[in-house]
Simulated assay, not measured.
Amino acid sequence: MGKQGLNTVEQQSVAPTASKFPLSFWEATVASTVALVFAVGLLGVYLTMPDSDYSFLKLPRTLEDLQLLRDNLESYTSDYTAQVLVGYCVVYIFMQTFMIPGTVFMSLLAGALFGVFKGVALVVFTATAGASSCYFLSKLIGRPILSSLWPEKLKFFQTQVAKRRKGLLNYMLFLRLTPTLPNTFINFASPIVDVPYHIFFLATVIGLIPAAYVTVKAGLALGELQSVGDLYDFNSIATLFLIGVVSVTPTLISKNES
């Protein structure tokens, strides 16, 4: 057999592996079941709302989408507060669970509809619930997905967690407060690299408060924002980094002393 024939055989043997779906049938069933539960929850909220035109209801992808959603939901929030809150929570948790981008728009919406203090409480609650949901879903189906999509990033995270096992809470706080790793990746990868849930939970609740405050407060002046980049000016980013450095300092000190 010539070299060309050997290459053909090698390509045929490699192709199925490269295109193989990372999830088994059972894992795909679990993910589909979780998505169905969220869909049923949203349907229940929709059915309890008054008859109206809800063409404005969609996941916001731009500030224009968000302003339209805010303008329409304001008229429902006072009379149908429970439905709006439940709908908001289900959507936010769903987006966090399945790593769907755009939760920053949902945080802005919380500020626009509920004000700073209620908005921050709502965002921290839903973000923590969504992160926890993602954590436990990943515990069931996450390893093949992460190994397929982000093998190098997963290896880096695993190495860092192993090195900082004694000060893991401080390290996880640092990650939550700074853009070292995306929050969605942290949510999905944490159970795979053996971050205990109680540490994951505490770091999430505490670490998300500063960024949630910045975003929710910006939602009060939604009409003045020109882009999402306006949320995080130099002072905001520097403050978050400073808090993050302070949170990880005890770990660095204890490591040097040992």
Rank of each mutant, 00 (worst) to 15 (best):
V86S: 04
A18Y: 07
E27G: 05
V45I: 13
L42C: 05
G41L: 10
T48W: 02
T62V: 12
I100P: 09
Y46V: 11
S107K: 11
A82T: 15
P101M: 13
Q12T: 07
V86Q: 08
T81Y: 10
C89W: 09
D79I: 01
L43V: 00
V86R: 04
A82W: 14
F38T: 00
V14K: 07
L68F: 08
G44F: 13
P50A: 02
Y80E: 10
S32H: 02
S75C: 00
M106H: 04
F56R: 00
L69N: 05
P101C: 08
G87H: 12
M95N: 03
P60A: 09
T33E: 00
L85P: 04
L68H: 12
T48K: 03
P101Y: 10
V86H: 04
E27V: 01
D53V: 06
G41R: 03
T29C: 09
P101I: 08
I93A: 09
S32Q: 08
T17A: 10
G41C: 06
S32D: 01
L73P: 04
T29E: 06
L36N: 03
T81Q: 09
T103I: 14
L43W: 05
S52F: 14
L59I: 13
A28P: 00
N72L: 06
V91M: 08
M95A: 08
V40S: 02
N72S: 15
T103G: 09
D51H: 12
A31P: 07
A39K: 04
T77G: 01
L69I: 00
Y54W: 02
L85Q: 11
L43T: 02
D71E: 10
T77A: 09
V86N: 04
T77Q: 10
I93F: 14
